[in-house]
Amino acid sequence: MLEVDGITKSFAGFTAVNKATLTVGVGQVHAVIGPNGAGKSTLFNLITGHLTADAGEVRLEGKRLTGLPPHAVVRSGLGRSFQRISVFSKMSVRENIQIGLVAREREELCFWRPLRDRRRDTDELLETVGLIDEQNATAGQMSYGKQKQLELALALAGQPRILLLDEPTAGMSPRETDECIELVMRVVKERGMTLLFTEHDMNIVFGIADRISVLHHGEIIASGAPEEVRANTSVQEVYLGRPAR
């Protein structure tokens, strides 16, 4: 489904991601793990084209994504969230969702008639992520957990075939974390999506992932089923030497 081929990125001489290669199969739940500063977010931003890669290439269902502007990447069937919350914080939750729906229907260039309400689709998405009661709240004034839910809703708005979540549970309480993971897995199953995510909580990763890639100093040192990765000696070294938070 998604192929990342030798992608590389340096900042001012420091190589953040070095020749990273991984393949995500259709319907898989694929986790990218690694200690802090391993380059997980950078890798994510490279895959989605938010950062420009120095070398390498990303393909989605055989189509080259590298070099495409964000909107073209999204239109190829990819949805993403950001580690740091990125929503339209001055708008209401409902308005946030509406922007997502406008974009999904490629209606953003329509200037000849007022915005349609899209009540049904909006409600459906709001219910999916459990924000129906907060629909009129100003996005930026909601609790952190709620904003994370909205972040997820925006990633889902374009009905992507592959969902990329960058630390979906970062900063959440244990209860919020469980709810969030449950929600994500439910939506992924319902919609038959492929999921690629980064996560620092090893219990979650080994609980839900079909495949795991381990990133260390910008390089992928292991990739495979959870048992293989757990048994891998270099992975053990990385995590024993510098345990994950």
């Binding site: 938010h50 502007p69 339209f88």
Partner: peptide, 15 residues
């Protein structure tokens, strides 16, 4: 939306 958060708008698929 673009004025408020251009990155997000782009990653919603907005040109």
């Amino acid at each position: 939306a673009i004025r408020e958060n251009e990155t997000r708008a782009g990653f919603l698929g907005v040109n």
